[in-house]
Design a protein around this nucleic acid. Sequence first.
RNA 1: GGCCCCAUCGUCUAGCCUGGUCCAGGACGAAUGGUUCUCAGCCAUUAAACACCGGUUCAAAUCCGGUUGGGGCUACCA
Length: 442
Amino acid sequence: MVRVRFAPSPTGYLHIGGARTALFNWLYAKAKHGAFVLRIEDTDAQRSKKEYLDEILYSLKWLGFGWDEIYYQSERFDRYTALAKKLLAEGKAYLASNIPDTEMAQPATQQAIIFKVTPQKIKIYDLIRGEIEFDADTIKDQVLIKSDGTPTYNFACVVDDAEMKITHVIRGDDHISNTPKQILLYQALGFTLPEFAHLPLILSKGGGRLSKRKGATAISDYHKMGYLAEALVNYLLLLGWSPGSNRELIDIGEAIALFDIKNINKTAAVLDLDKLDWMNNQYLKNADASKLADAIIPSLLEKQLIDKDNFDRNYIVSLVKLFQARLTTLNDFADWADFFFLDDVSIDQAAEKKFLTRDFSREFSLFAERLNALDTFDITGIEAAFRALVKELNIEAKTLIHPVRVALTGKTIGPGLFEVIYYLGKERTAKRLSKFIKKEKG
RNA sequence: GGCCCCAUCGUCUAGCCUGGUCCAGGACGAAUGGUUCUCAGCCAUUAAACACCGGUUCAAAUCCGGUUGGGGCUACCA
């Protein structure tokens, strides 16, 4: 039975790199019908924050990476201590001769337990990279239990991976040099070795490690920005892995079927969000409008475009259909479709300058009359009325379409004008048009 | 500095293991053109890469070595 784990430390938010590590672990578990274990590495009480933990758990759920088991290292200190003492008793570890001279005087009360590294060659068989050899001469003796009684990362990690019966340790490249240290610990403790796979790192745009300054945005922020979890997962999937074909849009179910750890590449990838934008649009375009509407409603409420207790969901669904092919993020909807919800549209200055260049009173009032006279106020009827009018006036359709759009929406861009008029309704269309009609004198 | 990892278009990548089918394919982005009314979308076209040097071989993006470049680790952080 395959058992993998994702082991975040709640000392920061879940970002792209962590999310991708979680994705590959989760995917591997699903592909092998194994278990996905979540282990919270909260041994550093000072830096661990509940706020971060909540964000990590929330984001993992949002991405769809549900876990089968969850453990907290802070609840397992007795295990680490017991095993460190065992190594001490066996002579494989020793007590630090003195308290660290370097750091601030913590209420440290005990001597650190340190593991004795014995000279030897250590071989790693990495599922992605193949064989890697290290010389233990380059590795210093390892602290197991610090003088404040808490375990070090490498020790807690080994104890947990072994006791949680993790079969495959899939983690970032940055842990590659931790692996020989850990292997030594496995051997000393008499544990069986798991398989190791080290994922290439994700680099920020200018090169270098992903940092807050360079694009290491929290996953929850992508959610807030209006990205779809499916799109983000698809994007992450293609960052370091390829199905071998030229497929770009792959849903998670297919990914599970297609996933093979051997197809993960060795090269670090640079994070470039342009493709994520494209992908999000692809998912948005093909999504069910009703579901999108539900995801969009919170942003409409937030911008006070609709009233919490009184809005027409079906109307919103219809509008979403009108816009979904042209959205990059869910949040774009509130920006582009605001005129459907506001009583007074604010006319974009540049738009007005560009298209309302002269007085359109005559055209607007004629068009308003025709719309008013319509038996059935539907899209084809509106279009027919409009076409007939421009023909009579002997002008090109677009010379009137643009001014009308600006008058109705305040913008130069948007969905087809006849759809806009239909969803705006007869009343509001007439009202907005009338603002640009100068009253005849006498 | 030491140890380790990596190296195909600007970016994500296919191809590399099992050399010839690759004057290197796809996608994003860019540019250009087409498309009922704008934008988006869609369609079409174009520009764009095997880091370098040497070796093996009839033949190398593919195998080997070196150089250079990038990255990681080198904590009583995780």
